[in-house]
């Protein structure tokens, strides 16, 4: 029994160590980030050149946010469908989904954006229009009008950019959904099926609610990644913050002002969103 105090002692020491360590472990990098952001915003309010650049560039924020949000919502739909296809027993669905995912993952996003905007979308719309003309030729004017309602001239670069981002990210999200669904133990599907539910009903009421909850942090991370990748749509002359920064720099030759502000704007958005994702992750873990 005399040894007991000795056994307790090291535990206290470990506690002391860890409390010292927690000061060392403070997220200094994060404070540095905040400082940089505060410093730049301070310059923006005090320096006229930076102020002018900021007022010009911030107009692009609406386009950046809108492009990201709309693309993401559509990408979720693509991703969910392709994710379900990837685990489907149907050979056709399975292979179509796999082809989609592998095709997208094998091509750089920048190239995909060019390709979808200048090849994919026009070819698809031309095809639809041709079907429309053919239907009209058969006398089915009503159906024909539906297929010819949208022509390539109507499709703005913004719309093509959103299509490209959504289609690209759909493939990435598909893998997240697939992993999420496969993380649910087999017994859940069996229990649902044994109650008489169809495959679709079991997915909808039992598997997907659990799977989506499991992958929420991953979905959040991809949203942050999408905010950054939305800068690529500037190559289509879509006036997001990247494009307006380039415009500003090109016309005023104030490259430094334009690109410092651009970088800090992205950083501000991604850091805030990442913090949101981390909070979400912590809350989900608490509920487990």
């Amino acid at each position: 029994m005399a040894e007991q105090p000795q056994a307790i002692k090291p535990i206290i020491e470990i506690d002391d160590l860890s409390s010292k360590k927690s000061i060392r472990d403070l997220p200094w990098w994060f404070f540095a980030l905040i400082l940089i952001a505060i410093y730049v915003f301070f310059i923006i309010t005090t320096n006229q050149n930076y102020n002018d650049a900021f007022n010009f560039i911030k107009i692009g924020l609406v386009v950046t946010i809108k492009t990201t949000l709309i693309s993401y919502v559509i990408a979720i739909l693509f991703g969910l469908l392709a994710g379900l296809g990837r685990i489907s027993k149907s050979v056709i669905l399975n292979n179509i989904s796999r082809l989609y995912v592998e095709l997208i993952r094998g091509i750089p996003i920048l190239v995909l954006i060019f390709f979808i905007a200048f090849v994919g979308v026009p070819v698809l719309v031309d095809g639809m229009n041709n079907i429309g003309y053919w239907l009209s030729g058969l006398g089915l004017d009503f159906l024909g009008k539906i297929f010819t309602a949208v022509t390539n001239q109507d499709l703005s670069m913004n719309a093509r950019a959103i299509t490209a981002l959504a289609f690209t990210y759909g493939a990435y999200l598909a893998e997240i959904f697939r992993a999420g669904i496969q993380s649910i133990v087999k017994g859940q599907m069996e229990a649902a099926r044994s109650l008489g539910m169809s495959y679709g009903q079991s997915m909808r009421y039992v598997i997907l609610p659990q799977a989506i909850r499991n992958v929420l942090p991953a979905l959040g991370n991809d949203f942050v990644a999408m905010v950054k990748d939305s800068s690529l749509v500037s190559v289509l002359a879509v006036r997001d913050i990247t494009q307006v920064s380039r415009l500003y720099a090109g016309t005023t030759f104030r490259f430094r002002e334009a690109y410092i502000i651009l970088a800090v704007l992205y950083l501000t958005m991604t850091v805030i969103l990442s913090l949101g994702v981390q909070l979400l992750e912590r809350r989900l873990r608490k509920h487990d």
């Binding site: 017994g187 859940q188 659990q210």
Partner: peptide, 11 residues
């Protein structure tokens, strides 16, 4: 059907 591992829906 009743399973060995219950298989209740945790959500």
């Amino acid at each position: 059907m009743v399973f060995q591992l219950f298989n209740l829906f945790p959500h």
